[in-house]
Each structure stands twice: as C-alpha cells, then as structure tokens.
C-alpha cells in the first residue's frame, strides 16, 4: 500500500532551482533511502515533505490526502514522525518526560493544569521506551545521554503518535559503524511489523545498502535514479556523481 506519494515537486530559491520535478512513492513497511551529493537538494526536498517549506509546484499525498500547505504540526497530527540530523530533544527533561510530552500533545492535553505531567501516560511512555531499548534509562536527563541513545530516544518520540510515515534526516550521522547498523536494524524491525513507511537521507552507504528497500538519487535537484540497491549501485551515473570508486565504504 502506498503511504507517501510525491509528484512533480519543485522549489527555487532566487531563481535557482533547488528541486525540480521530483516524483516518488513509499510503501507501508518499506524503507526508502534518499541519497545524493551535498547540495543536491535533499534537505529542501525533506523540508517540503514535513511542511517547513512550501513547494513552488507539485503535490505530496499522505494516504491519498494532499498535505502541501499544512504546517509541520498539522502534518504530524496526520501521522508523520520525524527525527533530525542533529538530535532535537528536551534536554532539561528526563528520557521518560520527553516521551510523555509527545503523548500529552498526541492526546491534546497541552493546556492541562492537572495532574503533574510526570504522572500522565507513564505506562505508555515506558512501553515506547522499551520498544527502542531505552527502558532502563527512563529516569536519566536527556542532556546527559550518549549520542546513540539520543537517537533511540528520538525514535521513541517519533513513534508516540503511531505514525504512518517516518521522515529520518541522516539518522545515523555521528555514530560508530556498528551502532549505525544496529539503529537501522531496530528501525527496520519496528516499521516492518507495524507497516510504517520510512524515508531517510543518509551518507553512510553501508547503512543504505544494508537496510534500504529502494534508493532514490538526487543530483542538482533532479532525480537521476530510482531502484533497488543493486540497480542503483551499478548505475554508472550514480557512481560518477556520488558513489565514486567505492573505496570509502564496505562491499557487503
């Protein structure tokens, strides 16, 4: 089943086309990797999907519903969870409170004056933390977490509103090689079971080739390849503009 359907997406900045005529789709339970050189338009593309940037042209449909023109928080309410390249968590709160705030928002109780936030949706928050393997760190301050754990906390927060689609911007940036593969294995496990669609950008080709079901490649704002990993890897144009000689990543 198609969760996200993007058609003819385009955006220019000051007359320079950052993204032009990009179309693709993501299926439920699938991971789609978006790769390309620095400055190819990946971030622009991402920000148009999550509502931070308004496209000049094109359509973005979530489960058939047009979401262009909606604000990020409205898009979230329709079931789009996000993780950021540089983790964004609430540093002054405990790990559990981070998830609790997401749940409070999901249940529309943000104006509540009673009871204490730390007593609301505690069990639900702990269940989410358990799914990402963070249950034992629930009481720690988010500000003191190791980087890999912050990434897992972000994932738990992103799952709090039972999303249909996860947008992950360089989910494994800054992590050690094995942690990268483990995090994406965790994501893949969860989304396959729950039928969540995932779109992620990534520079680590080991992660991309190990976990992506399909790969799309962006270069100078245009889609130059769309296919299964083996196809994309063998594409001479992709090798020329992005993959290079393949000396800087594994061959598995």
């Amino acid at each position: 089943m198609t969760v996200l359907q993007v058609e003819g997406l385009a955006k220019s900045f000051g007359g320079v086309a950052a993204v032009q005529g990009v179309s693709f789709a993501v299926e439920a339970g699938h991971l789609l990797a978006l790769i390309g050189p620095n400055g190819a338009g990946k971030t622009t593309c991402f920000n148009m999907l999550n509502g931070q940037l308004a496209p000049d042209r094109g359509s973005v449909r979530l489960d058939g519903r047009e979401i262009v023109g909606l604000k990020p928080r409205q898009i979230w309410r329709l079931g789009v969870g996000r993780t950021f390249q540089i983790t964004a968590t609430f540093g002054s709160m405990t790990v559990r409170e981070n998830v609790q705030v997401a749940l409070i928002s999901h249940h529309r109780r943000t104006l509540g004056l009673w009871p204490r936030a730390r007593d609301l949706y505690r069990a639900e928050a702990e269940a989410l933390l358990a799914r990402v393997g963070m249950a034992d760190q629930a009481e720690r301050a988010a500000a003191v977490l190791a980087y890999g754990d912050l990434k897992r906390l972000e994932l738990a927060v992103a799952l709090a509103n039972t999303p249909r689609l996860l947008l992950m911007d360089e989910p494994t940036a800054g992590m050690a090689p094995r942690e990268r593969v483990e995090l994406m294995a965790l994501v893949a496990g969860i989304v396959r079971v729950e039928g969540i669609a995932v779109l992620f950008t990534e520079h680590d080709m080991d992660v991309v080739f190990a976990h992506a079901d399909r790969i799309i490649v962006l270069n100078r704002g245009e889609l130059i390849a769309d296919g299964v990993p083996a196809q994309v890897r063998a594409d001479p144009r992709v090798q020329q503009v992005y993959l290079g000689g393949g000396t800087t990543f594994g061959h598995g």
Partner: peptide
C-alpha cells in the same frame, strides 16, 4: 573530515 560528505567527495579528501 569525512563526516556528512558524499563518498565521491571523501575520495577527494583522501
């Protein structure tokens, strides 16, 4: 120096 760079750029960096 290689963090966040495309593989082809990392090769130039090397």
């Amino acid at each position: 120096p290689s963090e966040g760079l495309a593989p082809v750029i990392i090769e130039q960096m090397a």
